[in-house]
Design a protein around this nucleic acid. Structure first.
Lengths: 226, 226
DNA sequence: AGGCTTACCTACTGATGAGTAAGACTACTT
DNA sequence: AAGTAGTCTTACTCATCAGTAGGTAAGCCT
């Protein structure tokens, strides 16, 4: 009991028998909680099993090693995030609107799934570990999505000028800005997802050059969702 | 010898006697190398002592615990980075020029001091550890610097419109974008610092809105340094 | 009923790694 | 030359934690 426990449930000894699929989900849920709070290295399998309300060998039987467990967390949460965003981006809309929707979806997801986002974000800089592949893949997919959007934007307006360099680094920069804002959000939880999304639009769509001149970005459509 | 060694120097047994100040620098140098490559948790004090070419108890005698050692690394490298940037930002210049110079200084520093930057960046998402204070402080200082710049920019042009929200989150977003670009740079080392800085200006000063219209940012002054 | 599968457990092993005890060598003082 | 302050080492201790061996019990078939 030297460290503060991760808040929450424990089940009494000899847990009820449950089908494997259910336990696997419970274990993954617990793992996301623990990994998001402690980070990969500082998290222990004992704590995961404790939070999951099950004994350690079950985790090994079902999910494999610590690394595999972590990779499974990453995969699951990355997929959820990407589907959240992918669900609202319609290629027929104009780029500005697509970007707005995607960005808003991102902050909405983060607001509603802090642990999911944290587990993805906290280990983001990790290299050399086997699960780095999962991390890199998730990031690559996100960047590719935005990059494609920017490419279409450049094409649509008939201007290749800003794609000259490739849009990929700019997409990477945008995700970085999004992550940093999400981090800032943790210390200012009173802000709405919409306000956060608006900030990112102001930076990424308008740029400081416009902002300095008093031209700020704001959602020009009717309010979408909360 | 299961893991690949951090490249480089070893000294023969019974190291030459050297004054404390010198050893402390050597230890910090080694620690930055190891921490930047492995991350805080995966780094071992044995490896640090090995790379430093000195025995472990010396590290404890001079720099204290692993956490204190890491904090010392963070402090030193953060200071170097901030001084690099602070050195080129002249408050009398207009904001655009200041931003350009600061951003260029950042990428120049990162290019010349990959380890320094990595040690600052890799653990950026860490919370709850004692050294998190150092990390947070470094970040806070960087954000404050940019934030102040933006405030002056807003004031100078006589427009408070974009400071309405506060500039702080935007400054945080900018640093995040910078970090992400620096990360991308690792996979594209052929790019020059200037090209990287230009990308960040395109995103943060012009914004996608302008870029889509074919209006890109470029340094309008004479070439600064390589 | 007996048998088989699957869920579940306690209690270990073995490795790694932070931190230290206790002393040895060197050089500078007086 | 003897003391002493500071540098440096080998060789431990001790805690933590990933992973496992070897079992118990619950349900589900005949």
């Amino acid at each position: 009991m030297t460290k503060k426990d991760v808040a929450g449930a424990r089940t009494p000894p000899r847990a009820k028998r449950l089908p494997r699929a259910v336990r696997e989900r419970q274990i993954l849920d617990a793992a996301v909680r623990v990994f998001s709070e402690r980070g990969y290295h500082a998290a222990s399998m004992d704590e995961v099993s404790d939070v999951a309300g099950i004994s350690k060998p079950m985790i090994y039987a079902y999910l494999g090693s610590k690394e595999e467990l972590f990779a499974a967390c990453i995969r699951r949460e990355a997929t959820r995030l990407m589907e959240s965003i992918g669900g609202v981006v319609d290629v027929n809309l104009d780029p500005e609107e697509q970007l707005w929707r995607g960005v808003l979806a991102f902050f909405t997801f983060v607001g509603e799934n802090r642990d999911s986002w944290q587990v993805l974000h906290r280990q983001a800089g990790t290299q050399g570990a086997p699960f780095a592949a999962e991390l890199a893949e998730g990031r690559r997919a996100a960047v590719a999505m935005i990059s494609a959007l920017l490419d279409r934007a450049a094409g649509k307006e008939g201007v290749g000028a800003f794609a000259e360099g490739q849009t990929e680094p700019l997409a990477a920069a945008l995700t970085g800005a999004g992550e940093a804002l999400a981090e800032w959000w943790l210390e200012h939880p009173e802000e709405s997802p919409k306000a956060m999304a608006r900030r990112l639009m102001n930076l990424s769509w308008m740029g400081f050059g416009n902002l300095v001149l008093g031209r700020a970005w704001h959602p020009d459509k009717q309010p979408e969702t909360a």
